[in-house]
Write a protein that binds this DNA or RNA. Structure first.
Length: 568
RNA sequence: CGGUGAGUGGCGCAGCUUGGUAGCGCACUUGGUUUGGGUCCAAGGGGUCGUAGGUUCGAAUCCUAUCUCACCGACCA
């Protein structure tokens, strides 16, 4: 490709509404342009990258035994009414009507359509297992699209759906897909982690997310520094901290005045927040004979609402009780609540439950207890894992300690079980002639998001640094003053023709521009290799070969360039 | 939806307080100059100042409504 016949579309200035680096660079490098909030056009350079990612995903899906299909973007509402998601999905689902005033929607995902399809086409256990996938544009009417391509409303997703007679077969395919995902991200050249995850509203039991590690990630990933263990912080089990046993001291009540927060009380009493507990009051579920539940966490720990919501005593989703109701029930407001003589059922986090001689609110205004002990001072209580795991915690797998890093979710796989197949009565006849509902798995990859995530992970102050496998071009040909020098032009044209003949994707910068302009544009675009052709080196019959990532320069004899590029 | 801020040539911005008929940088066009890291000089094209209404002799500027966008929050496979 010649730049003079291409739409390079690079920009010097940073668009003012682009916050994250991938968004800025995708605009500046001429990859995408915004049409409206969360909606982007893909320019040639961006599309080249997107197509490479798509192709890698497609090849690995095919290798894993999945079969490509394509389903409609516009879906009839009645399928979603069958699964119950027409009501459940909320305003993120863009609903539309056709000319006959019938309800339709723009597909945010395709469980319903594929389940209906398989139900029609597959009648016998002999046709199973079956794994179908598509790579297609999805639409989700996000409350707040942000970070450019990272969280757009329209985006390309690879979604696969597998169908099985039993959960063992589902698990086999799940493991195959897990491996296929690792293969995809290995080939993409990205630093990533598969992490144990919450399945969220899509349902199902077993689930893993695949995260590209990057500072700008929206998710916190906890992982062991000494094993393969990695989990989304939403889910990572927080192990109880063990303390050496202390002689219990006498319970005392102290005046703490207006000091209410953990920090304020700790400062006042000159103690470590780790020796205090905080008390949070949440609404109770219908399982328990109480309106509210008191949750006790160590002072420096954070409540994990997802874990809390899974406790049978606690209403799901977690809802905090407002202060007036707390005062009515306990007799004091926020800031001096505590487990001693607490009239509500108590659930203590594991770490809090191991504390000895700790500080807590006294359930009286402006008072705290010091040297509280569970067995002596507090009645019955439950112990549960309620808190967020933090850096430095022992890994729940038993090996190593926890580190926390930011990740961008680019893949998510689920064992759905029969959630959709049951709702839509999707089954086959077994070998005994009985109708049996199928087990399903579903497997998503955010294809467009991968492009942004790759940039978040691979850039410098000059621009993008593409991993070789997804770069828009393999090599850039940069002639110095070609429009003045016949020799440079001759060599450049010859190399261009030879590289094309070898099947190398090459961008030939044949614009009448100054060298600095060309260097800057090529670096911004992130092409992994450059060949610089200048009078200076032609006397020795050489050109310069330069790596974008390392800046490493190699002088090459003109005769060797093509084979060198093909091999590197 | 709540909070904050912004809409002025393709992009980034000034002008608005104190109304008088729109300007700067980048980009673009032409000519010259320069040529291994975003040259320099000159000339030029391009804007119903988000939209609608109002006040006024006169509105980018003041008032009202409305739309759009961004950031923070709630939400989310």
């Amino acid at each position: 490709m010649r730049t003079s016949q291409y739409l390079l579309a690079t920009q010097k200035e940073i668009p003012n509404d682009a916050e994250v680096i991938s968004h800025q660079l995708m605009l500046r490098a001429g990859m995408v342009r915004k049409l409206a909030s969360g909606l982007y056009s893909w320019l040639p350079t961006g599309l080249r990258v997107l197509n490479k990612v798509t192709q890698i995903v497609r090849e690995e899906m095919n290798k894993a035994g999945a079969i490509e299909i394509n389903m409609p973007v516009v879906q009839p509402a009645d399928l979603w009414q069958q699964s119950g998601r027409w009501e459940a999905y909320g305003p993120e689902l863009l609903r539309i009507k056709d000319r006959h005033d019938r309800d339709f929607l723009l597909g945010p995902t395709h469980e319903e359509v594929v389940t209906a399809l398989v139900n029609n086409e597959v009648n016998s256990y002999k046709q199973l297992p079956l794994n179908l996938y598509q790579i297609q544009t999805k639409f989700r009417d996000e409350i707040r699209p942000r970070f450019g391509i990272m969280r757009g409303r329209e985006f390309v997703m690879k979604d696969a759906y597998s169908f099985h007679l039993d959960s063992e077969c589902l698990n086999n395919t799940y493991q195959t897909m897990h491996q296929a995902y690792c293969n995809v991200f290995d080939r993409l050249g990205l630093e990533y982690r598969p992490v144990i995850a919450d399945s969220g509203s899509i349902g199902g039991a077993v689930s893993h997310e695949f995260h590209v590690l990057a500072e700008s990630g929206e998710d916190d990933i906890a992982f062991s520094n000494a094993s393969d263990y990695a989990a989304n912080i939403e889910l990572a089990e927080a192990v109880a901290e063990q303390y050496s046993s202390q002689a219990s001291r006498e319970l005392k009540i102290v005046d703490t005045g207006e000091h209410k927060t953990i920090d304020a009380v700790s400062n006042l009493l000159k103690i470590d927040p780790k020796t205090t507990v905080k008390t949070l009051i949440v609404k109770a579920s219908e399982e328990v004979d109480a309106q509210m539940i008191a949750l006790i966490l160590r002072g420096d720990h954070q409540l994990n609402e997802i874990k809390a919501a899974k406790h049978e005593w606690i209403a799901e989703p977690v809802e905090f009780v407002d202060e007036k109701e707390v005062i009515a029930a306990v007799g004091c407001g926020f800031g001096t609540l505590g487990p001693v003589k607490m009239p509500l059922p108590i659930i203590a986090d594991r770490s809090a439950a191991n504390l000895q001689n700790f500080v807590c609110g006294a359930n009286q205004a402006e008072k705290h207890y010091i040297d509280t002990n569970w067995d002596r001072d507090i009645g019955q209580f439950e112990v549960a894992d309620l808190r967020n795991i933090v850096a430095g915690d022992p890994s729940p797998c038993g090996t190593g300690t926890i580190e926390i890093r930011k990740g961008i979710e680019v893949g998510h796989i689920f064992q759905l079980g029969d959630k959709y197949s049951k709702a839509m009565n999707c089954g086959v006849l077994t070998d005994t002639g009985k109708h049996q509902v199928l087990q399903m798995g579903c497997y998503g990859i955010g294809v467009t998001r991968i492009v942004a995530a790759a940039i978040e992970q691979n850039h410098d102050k000059y621009g993008i640094i593409w991993p070789e496998n997804i770069a828009p071009f393999k090599v850039a040909l940069i002639p110095m003053n070609m429009h003045k020098s016949h020799r440079v032009k001759e060599v450049a044209e010859k190399l261009y023709a030879d590289l094309i003949a070898q099947g190398v994707e090459v961008l030939f910068d044949d614009r009448k521009e100054r060298p600095g302009v060309m260097f800057a544009d090529i670096e911004l675009t992130g092409i992994p290799n450059s060949i610089v052709i200048g009078e200076r080196n032609l006397d020795n019959n050489e050109v310069e070969f330069k790596k974008r990532a390392s800046g490493e320069k190699t002088m090459l004899s003109i005769d060797n360039v093509v084979s060198f590029v093909a091999e590197n």
